[in-house]
Computed example of a mutant assay.
Amino acid sequence: MAISSLSLSFVSNPLTNMFGMRSWTSPAETAAVSSNGITKCSRNTSYADHCTVSGNCKRRALIFGIGAMTVNSFPASPLLAEGKPKNYEAFVDKIDGYSYYYPSDWRDFDFRGHDSAFKDRYLQLQNVRLSFLPTDKTDIHDMGPMEEVVANLVTNVYSAPNQVATVLDMQEKNIEGRNYCTFEYILTSPNFARAAFATIAIGNGRYYTLIVGANERRWRKFRNQLKVVADSFRVLDI
């Protein structure tokens, strides 16, 4: 399997909300953890339909991590070459066309607006979830420069109005001809902070998003474990 990767630096140019989407969760979820704001794929909803509401998203502050974006600081995990890692399980959805690994002691749960989700048995905010939208685009680069795509996602989709978004790192990789982008970020509110990895990709006429994260207090301990999940996401041809 051919895997190539490239870490990129961000450009702090003025940004617009190219997706036109707002995040949404229950009131309790909004207070504790940011949703990725992308609803489960609907058979009668198109990517263009979501873009018609552009301009309704409130601008939020974005802070870029200083010194965090180095070429080798964000290595890809050669999961498929090595096989399923110890203490992880594989989730494969051949109908909707994707797969990823999750910690074997996690359990599945319903996360509103998502196609699949797993969480720690005892820590609900430590979880992974996958959602997708229909799109007429064929590659993530069709959405624009990845620096701007990531910045718009983190500031206008993933974060709540009272949160400050900090993008720590970003990596693009090509696996068997398909482009993926994985980025690490922190959302900070007055009383709470949450860190996460997100991986995005396009295939099968769908725009996929996988997010895996935890509260910031536990991030340092579990970051590498959660990075394995983010790196393992693959789009399957259907």
Rank of each mutant, 00 (worst) to 15 (best):
D110C: 02
D110A: 11
F111C: 08
F111A: 08
R112M: 07
G113S: 01
A117P: 00
K119E: 06
K119Y: 01
K119W: 00
R121H: 01
Q124N: 03
Q126I: 05
T135Y: 03
T135Q: 03
T135N: 04
T138F: 05
I140A: 08
I140D: 07
H141S: 14
D142W: 04
M143S: 10
P145C: 07
V149L: 11
V149W: 08
N152A: 15
N152R: 11
L153M: 08
T155R: 14
T155L: 06
N156H: 15
N156L: 12
V157I: 11
V157N: 04
V157H: 02
S159M: 03
S159E: 06
A160I: 11
A160R: 15
P161Q: 12
N162R: 07
T166V: 04
V167G: 03
L168Q: 12
L168E: 13
K173V: 09
I175L: 13
I175K: 07
E176N: 15
G177M: 06
G177T: 09
G177N: 05
R178T: 13
N179S: 14
N179E: 10
Y180I: 05
Y180W: 05
C181N: 11
E184V: 03
T188E: 10
P190S: 03
P190L: 03
P190F: 06
A193C: 06
R194E: 05
